[in-house]
């Protein structure tokens, strides 16, 4: 009788990882933008499951609240507002260059995969990551909040600037007070 408590995390991880890969392919392969966005929601939920299986419950909750809950809903709004239709794929040919690019991507993916698998965790870093240690430090939420507002306060503040800027940039691009003139 094998010890299930040792095997179970691996089973959970690999199930989630496999599902995430499949759903991610569906996101890019789906012809209809709404289907694509719905697959993205599923993808983000599964990713949250992966975080939860790593004992990062706070990140998992945030993932669902912010990404699956808010961002993808905005995606759907944009798709509806722009009234995007199913993509018409007429006369798309698979060229040699594209096949080469796909091959290179595949090789790169395999290299990354095998290099990742060949390494073992080095044990360097900030303390233990098991449940008891997180519990002792005050729980996930507190640890994340502490890090965010002490060690990472500078990038945290700058990120607010970044988001403001992305907003201004989107408005500037979307404003329609100009005519698009074709290039000479």
């Amino acid at each position: 009788m094998p010890d299930f408590s040792l095997i179970l995390p691996h089973v959970v991880f690999h199930t989630f990882a496999l599902l995430i890969t499949i759903v991610s392919i569906c996101v890019v392969a789906a012809r209809h933008p709404v289907k694509s966005a719905v697959f993205l929601v599923v993808d983000l939920f599964l990713l949250a499951g992966l975080y939860a299986s790593l004992d990062s419950h706070f990140v998992a909750a945030i993932q669902i609240l912010v990404y699956a809950g808010a961002i993808v809903v905005l995606f759907l709004f944009v798709i509806m507002l722009l009234n995007l239709q199913q993509e018409q794929l007429k006369g798309v040919k698979f060229t040699v260059v594209e096949a080469g690019a796909l091959l290179i991507t595949l090789i790169g993916f395999l290299v990354v995969m095998f290099t990742t698998m060949s390494g073992k965790p080095t044990g360097l870093g900030e303390g233990s990551l098991d449940v008891a240690a997180i519990e002792a430090a005050g729980g996930n939420t507190q640890v994340v909040a502490m890090k965010l507002l002490t060690n990472f306060i500078w990038p945290f503040e700058l990120a607010s600037m970044l988001i403001l800027m992305a907003m201004v940039a989107a408005i500037v691009i979307a404003k329609k007070d100009k005519k698009v003139v074709p290039a000479a």
Partner: peptide, 13 residues
């Protein structure tokens, strides 16, 4: 990385 993105996103726009 945040600095890089601030520089890049603004430039795209």
């Amino acid at each position: 990385f945040v600095g890089l993105e601030m520089a890049s996103i603004g430039i795209y726009a």
